[in-house]
Design a binder for these strands. Structure first.
Length: 583
DNA sequence: GTAGGGTTAG
C-alpha cells in the first residue's frame, strides 16, 4: 500500500484530527480522505479507524472501514483494539482481536495489554484465561507491560492468588506493578493485604507515587487505619506530590471513614477543583456520620454551582436522608432524580428509600414504595432494608413474612437466617428460633465473626468476642467488669434481646458482656491518654445492648467514644449518640 | 502507540 510522507501533513489529516471522537465529523473526514485520493494511506486510515473505535461508532461502520483496507497489519489491529478497550464498549476490542487471529495477523505485546484490559473491565474471565495462553504461545510472557495487564486482569476477576503469582514471578517490578497489586487487594476488600504489600514495597526500595497513595488511602479507609492515613497525608505534603482531585477525594474518603468529618471537609475545601466524584464523596461523608443537614446543604450548593450530580450522588444523598430522618427531603430528592436529571433509579436508590421510610417508622409507606414504585421483582437488598425496619420498630408479623421471603430469594445467605431467628426471638417464638438455627447448622452456614479495632499510639489492636489472645487480657476483663458494674449503678439495664442467637452455641457463655466493641473500649480507656477520643472500627453492626452500654460509658468515663459499624458512625458523648437511636 | 489511581444502598 502506498504511503506518502505527505499524508500526515495533508489537509485531510488536519480535518481528521479536528473531527476527533465525534461520529459525523469522522464520516466527513473519511469522505475528505477519499476525495483527496489518500484512501491508500495506511497511517491515515489507522488513525481514522482508531477514532471511530473510541467514538464507539456503530460496529457496522468500523467493520466496513476495516474491510475496505487490504491486508490490515498488526499495528492497525493493535491501534483499534487499544482504542476500543478505552471506549464505552470494550467488548468490540475482543471482536477485533479474534478477527485478527483468524486472518491471521500476528498479535504483539501492545495487542495483549489492550485486550487484557478489556477482559478485566468486562470481568470476562474465561476469555481472559484463554488469552493468557495465547500470549504464552506468542512468547510475550516476559514483557513487563503484558505481565502487569495480566495481573490486573486476574485481580479484577477476583482471583488474587493468581494475580499475586503473576506479580511474584515478575523479574522486574516497577512502581506501576506494585500499584496494580496494591489496588487489586484494596478493590477486593482485602485492605490489610494492600497495606502489608505497601510496606514490602518500601522495603524493596521502590518509591511510591501518587497512584500508590490513592490506593493505600482507600485501604486505610477500608480498615480504619487512621494513623497510616495521616502518615500518607504527611508524605504527600512533604514530598511535594500534587494534591489533585483524585488524591484529594481519596483523602476525604479516608478521613470520613476513619471518623474525622471535619478533616474531610478541610481537604474538600483545599482542593483546587471539584468534580462530581469529590462532591459525592463529601456528601457521603456527612451522610455516614448522621449529618444529614450538612449533606443536604452541600448538595444544594452542588446543584447551584457544581457539576451535574450522577446516580452515585443520589445514593449518597438518599442515604444521608435515611440516616437523619429527613423524609421529605429524601422523597423530593428521589423525585428530582428522574425529573430534573433524567437518571433512572436503580436498586441502590430503592433500598435507600425503603430504608428511609423504614427507619422513620413509616412501615406502610415503605411497603407501599416496594409495591408501587419498584417495577421489577424487588431484590434481596430491598427486603433486607424492610426487615431491618420491622426489627427496629418491632413489627414481628411483617418481619417474619419479609424474612421468609428473603430466604426464598437467597437461601444461601447466612445473615438472612440470623435476622430471621432474631425476629422470631423478639416475637417470643423460641421454637422457631431453634428450627432456624438447626437449618443453619445443617447447611453449615456460618455468620461472619465480629471484630473491633482500636489504635493506641498508632498501633492497631484487634478484638474478637470473648477474645483472650491479647497480652493484657486479664486486666482488660477486670476493667470491663468494673466498668459494667459502674454503668449498672448508673441505671444501665442489659438489653437481653440482643443476646439471643446472634451468637454461636459455644460463644453464648460470653453473652453480651464481652462483645468485641466493649473489649476494645475497655482497652482504649485503659491505655489512651486522658482527653483522647476513643475510636473503634467494627466490621458488623452494633447490637442494641452495646449501643446502650456505650452511651452510659461515655458518661461514666467522661469520654467521647466514636464507633464505626458496618453502616455508619456513632458519636457517643454525655450519654447520647449522634444517631439519635436512629440506626 | 503499551501497565496502575478517587465517590454509592442494605
Amino acid at each position: 500500500m502506498a504511503e506518502t510522507s505527505s499524508s500526515l501533513h495533508s489537509p485531510a489529516y488536519v480535518f481528521l484530527l479536528r473531527a476527533g471522537h465525534r461520529l459525523r465529523p469522522l464520516h466527513q473526514a473519511h469522505a475528505h480522505i477519499i476525495v483527496s485520493g489518500l484512501h491508500r494511506s495506511r497511517s491515515l486510515l489507522t488513525k481514522l479507524l482508531s477514532f471511530a473505535c473510541s467514538a464507539a461508532a456503530t460496529r457496522r461502520y468500523t467493520l466496513l472501514l476495516l474491510h475496505s483496507i487490504p491486508e490490515p497489519d498488526s499495528f492497525l489491529f493493535s491501534s483499534i483494539i487499544r482504542a476500543s478497550s478505552r471506549s464505552s464498549s470494550p467488548s468490540s476490542s475482543l471482536l477485533f482481536y479474534f478477527l485478527m487471529l483468524s486472518l491471521p495477523v500476528p498479535p504483539s505485546n501492545y495487542t495483549f495489554t489492550s485486550v487484557l484490559k478489556s477482559c478485566a473491565d468486562l470481568s470476562a474471565s474465561r476469555t481472559g484465561i484463554s488469552i493468557h495462553s495465547h500470549l504464552l504461545v506468542h512468547g510475550f510472557d516476559q514483557d513487563s507491560y503484558v505481565q502487569t495487564a495480566l495481573l490486573v486482569f486476574y485481580a479484577k476477576c477476583g482471583d488474587l492468588v493468581v494475580a499475586r503469582k503473576v506479580f511474584d514471578r515478575m523479574p522486574e517490578r516497577k512502581v506501576v506493578a506494585w500499584n496494580a497489586m496494591i489496588s487489586g487487594y484494596e478493590q477486593n476488600g482485602i485492605g490489610e493485604e494492600a497495606i502489608e504489600l505497601f510496606h514490602k514495597m518500601r522495603d524493596a526500595g521502590v518509591l511510591p507515587d501518587s497512584a500508590t497513595m490513592v490506593s493505600l488511602l482507600s485501604a486505610c479507609a477500608q480498615v480504619g487505619a487512621l494513623s497510616l492515613g495521616q502518615w500518607v497525608e504527611n508524605y504527600v505534603m512533604e514530598n511535594g506530590l500534587e494534591l489533585n482531585v483524585v488524591l484529594g477525594t481519596s483523602l476525604i474518603n479516608m478521613y470520613a471513614r476513619c471518623g474525622h468529618v471535619r478533616k474531610a471537609r478541610e481537604v474538600f475545601d483545599m482542593l483546587p477543583e471539584h468534580n462530581v466524584i469529590a462532591w459525592t464523596a463529601m456528601i457521603a461523608a456527612y451522610g455516614m456520620h448522621g449529618h444529614g443537614l450538612e449533606a443536604m446543604q452541600l448538595f444544594d450548593r452542588m446543584r447551584s454551582e457544581g457539576p451535574l450530580p450522577n446516580d452515585v450522588t443520589f445514593v449518597a444523598v438518599l442515604s444521608a436522608c435515611a440516616h437523619s430522618g429527613l423524609v421529605c427531603e429524601g422523597r423530593e430528592a428521589f423525585e428530582s432524580m428522574s425529573r430534573d436529571y433524567q437518571l433512572v433509579p436503580r436498586v441502590e436508590h430503592h433500598v435507600c428509600m425503603v430504608d428511609m421510610y423504614g427507619r422513620a417508622g413509616l412501615l406502610d409507606e415503605a411497603m407501599w414504595f416496594i409495591r408501587e414504585r419498584i417495577q421489577a421483582e424487588p431484590g434481596a437488598a430491598v427486603w433486607t432494608a424492610m426487615l431491618g425496619a420491622c426489627k427496629m420498630h418491632k413489627d414481628f408479623d411483617l418481619g417474619v413474612e419479609v424474612a421468609e421471603r428473603l430466604l426464598t430469594i437467597e437461601p444461601e445467605n447466612p445473615s438472612h437466617y440470623v435476622l430471621l431467628s432474631n425476629i422470631y426471638a423478639l416475637a417470643g417464638r423460641m421454637d422457631r428460633v431453634e428450627k432456624v438455627r438447626n437449618v443453619m447448622i445443617r447447611q453449615r452456614l456460618k455468620k461472619q465473626t465480629g471484630y473491633s479495632l482500636i489504635e493506641i499510639d498508632n498501633v492497631p489492636h484487634v478484638f474478637r468476642m470473648g477474645d483472650t489472645s491479647h497480652p493484657q487480657t486479664m486486666q482488660i476483663y477486670n476493667y470491663l467488669e468494673e466498668l459494667m458494674h459502674k454503668i449498672r449503678n448508673a441505671g444501665y439495664m442489659p438489653e437481653t434481646d440482643s443476646v439471643l442467637h446472634e451468637l454461636e452455641e459455644e460463644e453464648r457463655e460470653y453473652a453480651l458482656r464481652f462483645h468485641s466493641e466493649k473489649l476494645a473500649i475497655a482497652f482504649g480507656l485503659m491505655n489512651a491518654g486522658e482527653d483522647v477520643v476513643i475510636r473503634i472500627v467494627k466490621n458488623l453492626r452494633m447490637c442494641r445492648d452495646c449501643h446502650l452500654a456505650i452511651k452510659f460509658m461515655s458518661v461514666i468515663a467522661c469520654r467521647e467514644i466514636i464507633v464505626r459499624d458496618k453502616h455508619r458512625f456513632h458519636h457517643f458523648k454525655d450519654g447520647e449518640c449522634s444517631c439519635k437511636d436512629y440506626w
